[in-house]
Design a protein around this nucleic acid. Structure first.
Length: 547
RNA sequence: GUCCCUAUCGUCUAGAGGCCUAGGACACAAGAUUCUCAUUCUUGCAACAUGGGUUCGACUCCCAUUAGGGAUACCA
């Protein structure tokens, strides 16, 4: 019984059997196979959506395949329910996977399993093969030994790491290996690198171009003592078997490239094309840093849902970071879906972008302004159902009224208002239409009283009020009122001769605006009166006596 | 320490040696529009990190410096 059989006492499939089970994909020329491969360690990071978006677009616009693989080889870091969150987040953002797990976590696709923890025998079969071909070996070094090794290396000025002459178990005699194995001493399997640190290699990256590296000479761990592979090994085996043509991932992986390329080569696999993208960052004091899972609520994609950004706004914002010509394209293709925009890898910026909420708001306002009343209503309703019980109840009980409110300066308007960036803004925009929420603050009362003759203005208007007035008819009445009570027609006239007037027309309108809305700023007052109806408007106007 | 990546307006960026008097978008400021706000329109503000090369010519190519970021794990 060889030491290899002691390492893997249970029968494993052969490498050939596995290769036969996962045949090469038969795809048209130019079709890209891409993937998103998150670890289930918590929520879905906005950077994960960003990477997924690039991968998804590239695959689908080329007629290829986009799949999801769950990288759960680190059992210690796994968080329960994280896979479900990943699947539903991808589905929510319309990043449709062809293989992997659907919204409900059902596995789909011919290259299953797509969860690395379930691929253990596959990895082990390849590890076994590597042991047999002398490209890997067991290593019995303990954490303490490794720590000590690093210290000696640092003290002597040597490059730290497990390589070359420092690799104690690299050429360990078979008898001794068997001895340790028999004694039940824990071990890992290391890759036996044939690289030399003095050799320079050049690797082509889809974004950064040619990158020079020293060749990898580290004997990295490919199988941990728990029998599961490390990222490096799993990546190579999986992306080979699953036929990935393009790996687009975060640039924290750049420094592992020499290793990955070497592994592909040593295992006789064709390496995919690599592109390393910069992370989304935020300002922290006066330096930038990557959006952090622990410190930044906006790192979690669910944050955007909670606040009520339309998902397509988030996607379009991200797309804008992916290819900055997206916004020009969008302006010229207003009716098209973002999915018609050709994403190109070489237009990606090599440096990381700061997440800009102001820009997101702008994009979101633009999108919401283009929606019909019915669409806004439904979107807000669905949002409120999960995130704002009060608003949800209000909408349920008064759906027609709320629709009428939402259609102000929207239905039939040349340019719809852009004052809603997120659904959580809506509550404040519609509250004053409801009598139980409506109030005139002391501040507003003072503002109202500052207008001369305010009581007379209101008293004169009340008998003239007609709920069917058009905007022009209503405004003509305001002008008449201004005229009758000696208010200037416009600001200019008033400013030219302030002592001659009681104020200008804006003060006249302000009186009514405050009485009707409780605010000095609101959408078009004539439309508001239409929506509120005669009874409500008159009852509010009549409160002028109590101010 | 070593290796690698990055560097244009406040932000996202365009820029492939002469199209650059450095363009666009967001933001900001001013003005215009039948009232306020939101729109819309017009105008404005504002950048090639520094120092060396190469070249007739450099934002663009090369080198150094500086500053950010990443890697250096039985984490991904």
């Amino acid at each position: 019984m060889s030491y290899i059989d002691k390492i893997f006492p249970n029968p494993l499939p052969t490498v050939d059997e596995i290769e036969a089970k996962y045949p090469r994909r038969n795809l048209p020329d130019g079709a890209k196979v891409t993937r998103v491969a998150p670890s289930p360690t918590g929520f879905m990071h906005i950077g994960g959506i960003y990477a997924a978006l690039i991968n998804e677009r590239l695959a689908h616009q080329s007629g290829g395949v986009f799949f999801l693989r769950i990288e759960d080889t680190d059992t210690k870091r796994e968080v329960e329910g994280a896979t479900e969150v990943i699947c539903s987040s991808l589905a929510d953002y319309d990043l449709n996977i062809d293989e992997g797990f659907d919204r409900n976590g059902n596995e789909i696709g011919a290259y299953a399993p797509y969860r690395q923890s379930e691929r253990k025998t596959i990895y082990q079969a390849y590890i076994k093969h590597m042991l047999e071909t002398g490209k890997a070996y067991p290593c019995f070094a303990t954490q303490e030994e490794l720590e000590a090794l690093r210290k000696t290396q640092e003290a002597s000025g040597a490059r730290p790491g497990y390589y070359g002459r420092w690799a104690k178990y690299r050429d360990y005699p078979v008898e001794k290996i068997e001895e340790k194995l028999d004694a039940g001493i824990p071990f890992v399997i290391r890759f036996k690198s044939n690289g030399s640190y003095n050799n320079k290699i050049v690797i082509q990256d889809g974004l950064k171009g040619k990158i020079n590296f020293p060749e990898n000479d580290l004997d990295v761990v490919i199988m941990k003592s728990d029998g599961l592979p490390t990222y490096h090994f799993a990546h190579v085996v999986d992306d080979h078997l699953m036929g990935t043509t393009h790996v687009i991932r975060g640039d924290e992986w750049i420094s592992s490239l020499p290793l990955h390329i070497q592994l592909f080569k040593e295992m006789g696999f064709k390496a995919p094309k690599y592109t390393h993208i910069a992370p989304i960052q935020k300002m922290d004091g006066d330096s930038r840093r990557k959006l952090s899972k622990r410190h930044d609520p906006e790192a979690d994609v669910r944050f955007y849902d909670k606040v009520g950004y339309p998902r397509v706004a988030v996607i379009e914002y991200l797309l804008n970071l992916v290819n900055s010509n997206f916004e020009d394209w969008k302006r010229n293709n207003q009716t098209k879906s973002y999915k018609d925009f050709p994403v190109s890898l070489n237009k990606l910026s090599p440096s990381g972008a700061l997440f800009d909420f102001v820009k997101l708001n702008n994009i979101s306002k633009e999108i919401i302004a283009k929606m019909t009343t019915e669409e806004v209503y439904d979107a807000v309703y669905n949002w409120a159902e999960k995130n704002d019980a009060n608003l949800h109840n209000l909408m349920t009980a008064n759906s027609d009224y709320v629709k009428a409110i939402l259609s102000i300066e929207r239905t039939g308007a040349k340019n719809a208002r852009k004052d809603i960036a997120k659904y959580s803004d809506v509550s404040a925009e519609i509250e004053y239409f409801f009598d139980d929420k409506f109030a005139i603050s002391d501040e507003m009362k003072a503002e109202l009283k500052s207008v001369k003759k305010y009581v007379e203005l209101v008293d004169t208007y009340i008998p003239m009020f007609n709920e069917n007035d058009t905007k022009d008819e209503w405004f003509a009445k305001m002008q008449k009122l201004a005229d009758d009570f000696n208010f200037a027609k416009n600001g200019k006239e008033y400013k030219a001769n302030p002592d001659a007037f009681n104020g200008d027309i804006s003060s006249v309108v302000k009186v009514f605006r405050i009485l009707i809305t409780g605010k000095t700023q609101s959408p078009d007052l004539s439309e508001i009166q239409h929506v509120m109806g005669k009874e409500r408007v008159l009852s509010r106007l009549n409160t002028v006596k109590n101010i």
